[in-house]
Design a protein around this nucleic acid. Structure first.
Lengths: 198, 198
DNA sequence: CGCATTAACTTGTCAGCGTCAAGTTATATT
DNA sequence: AATATAACTTGACGCTGACAAGTTAATGCG
């Protein structure tokens, strides 16, 4: 077997990578229903069937983009925690929450892909691994606040809380007048009350 | 102008209605990526272009199915509240929460449609109206618990909490071992702590 | 150094999709 | 009974994801 990194450079620089970034660009720039495998190939400057040699189906390509989304997501949240004004467990968790909202709002298409379930993505091992890594990151941050005994339930509460609000905002299911207030801060406060109560 | 109910019965019984129910059946029975306009027409026993006369695009048909989903959703939650063992505001809200989880789990495709945003559905006035009616129903139930002053923030907390957990479960983003516990009850307890604290 | 191997990519094709346009059928009005 | 019109069908267009077969070019071996 040869070095696979070199293999991918036979003709293009690295089409595998280029397809992923072209897909991310497409998702960021156009409505998701217009993002097709052929459109991504077009953006990468290759023929419509070229992706086949790097991803067996479009679902695999999207799954890989979602996995990269989780990896990036983990990095952003870690940086946010480290950048919290005071390095208490509560402040770090709040900072991660704010970063979470920001991530969802500025990467809506990838975010939906990450949490869209099996509909569009194929659940490759890489994707499963990346999504569980994100979960574990949150487990650590929450455990620091609640202690290990209540951690599991608290993580569930924290993640579903921030995820739920992010999705409702993306789906535009919140009455406009509600959005005039700082819904994210309200939500984070009530979330913290839920995990620290008694 | 003629009676529009009679109009719809010219050839079929009522194709408008039949398309909606055929679409609901398709969403319940097959993976969502296989549910096409032509598949729905097939199930309704008409040609592939017949739906055009009742819904300008597939997005409008799906939007109408989502709107019916909200109407049904409202009914289910109201019945759950009225069927709560004790008729206190807290017990009614908890019963609605449990019914919410049950609805999402037993109607996953329609539920995703309802909260999927503009991607698939066209936001017809009917859909907007139905989704805000669901919001208002929740406002009433939550106001009974918190009083009017904290109601807005509490509704946001409640809806995003139950919605977030429902979506995470549907998307299978929760580690399997977490699901061994009764996550819904845990979540509802912490949610209530969040809105009643202080 | 040169040839065979093989991976990377292209071209062509297929069925299926949503939508539009034109033609057909059957109801309802006059 | 004749006509207008809404409901539905048929056929077409460009697009999609996927597959098969052919072409190109870099690698490894002698």
């Amino acid at each position: 077997m040869l070095n696979s990194d070199l293999h991918k450079a036979y003709h293009h620089g690295d089409l595998h990578e280029k397809l992923l970034s072209a897909g991310e660009a497409a998702l960021a720039e156009m409505p998701v229903e217009q993002v097709s495998l052929r459109e991504i190939a077009r953006r990468a400057g290759v023929s419509h069937a070229a992706p086949k040699h790097h991803f067996p189906t479009m679902g695999h390509l999207l799954g890989e983009i979602a996995a990269r989304g989780f990896t990036n997501f983990i990095k952003v949240l870690a940086e946010a925690a480290d950048g919290a004004p005071t390095q208490t467990p509560d402040a770090r968790l709040m900072a991660m929450g704010r970063a979470y909202f920001r991530f969802a709002e500025s990467n809506p298409a990838v975010y939906r892909l990450m949490f869209g379930g099996r509909d569009q993505c194929v659940m490759t091992p890489h994707l499963v691994e990346a999504s569980f890594a994100a979960w574990n990151q949150l487990v650590d941050a929450v455990t620091a606040v609640t202690g290990p005994a209540r951690a599991n339930a608290a993580v569930l509460h924290v993640w579903s809380s921030v995820h739920g609000l992010s999705m409702l905002k993306l789906a535009q299911r919140l009455p406009p007048d509600i959005l005039l207030h700082n819904v994210e801060e309200q939500k984070l406060r009530m979330m913290m009350a839920g995990i620290t109560a008694e």
